[in-house]
Design a protein around this nucleic acid. Structure first.
Lengths: 131, 131
DNA sequence: AGTTACCTTTACGTTAACGTCAACTTGAGC
DNA sequence: GCTCAAGTTGACGTTAACGTAAAGGTAACT
């Protein structure tokens, strides 16, 4: 191998199966301008980069991000900018995302504590029933 | 004071202001069965418990939970169950929520790393521009 | 040639979570 | 008594993120 990069390709249903989504969803993300797979005739052909982008979108989704927000994350991931102004704007976006994630982290920790307390109350109630 | 519990009340716009949402949103949550404020004639009167529930809903929202999911969280918070079966079901829900939060935590950590990398690339590109 | 398994586009349908009027009531202040 | 702010109940509108069906193309078996 004279090129270490993986040049695997995937059909739309390959990706749909792997990520447990429908092909409609994948085409929808393309309509939304977040994926631009190659074509063989009409048929879409995805590569590893597309696959990574899809991963980013789905992770964003699990975190409650909108597609618009995920799109921004993808753009951060792919800094094709060539002028300083855009790069500074990008940094500021990165900071914002960081702040949002910190908020989420805090929310999660509070929730985990509340779940602990809820379970404790639950167990307590069960003990009372047994007595 | 012979009762340490706070018995403050709030108008609908008090809460709307505090949490930066609209009154419509609060009424919507009531339609969805997640709040049941007292009434003075027609006017809704909220107490601290309602306020806490609202907080839970909004925190859930920040984490990307649907209202249905937040409703479940609220029910966990308020274990009025009196039979063992329900309590066991509740515990299982709590476990599920915990697992979901763990997934979110993992997602957040991955994302934070990627943001670090993205910023690094961004700074690198800026250094190149200066040279 | 026929069936099967994927793929495509086009287009209308659906659900959640509110937004946005419209038309009204109600208590406080002038 | 009038106004004004804040409350109310409908009821229809909107956006995001897909679902779902219709109608068809294509390549591979059998």
């Amino acid at each position: 191998m004279n090129d270490m990069a993986k040049h695997r390709t995937y059909s739309i249903s390959d990706l749909a199966r792997e990520f447990d989504i429908t092909t409609r969803t994948i085409r929808f993300y393309e309509e939304a301008g977040m994926l631009e797979p190659e074509r063989n005739g009409q048929t879409r052909i995805y590569n590893d980069e597309d696959r990574v982008k899809l991963k980013l979108i789905l992770r964003g989704k699990r975190l409650g991000f909108s597609l618009a927000e995920s799109r921004e994350l993808i753009e951060m991931y792919d800094p094709t900018s060539d002028n300083a102004k855009q790069l500074h704007a990008l940094r500021s976006k990165i900071q914002q995302s960081r702040a949002a994630l910190e908020q989420q982290l805090a929310d999660i920790q509070v929730m985990q504590n509340e779940l602990d307390a809820a379970e404790e109350r639950c167990l307590e109630a069960l003990r009372e029933l047994e007595s």
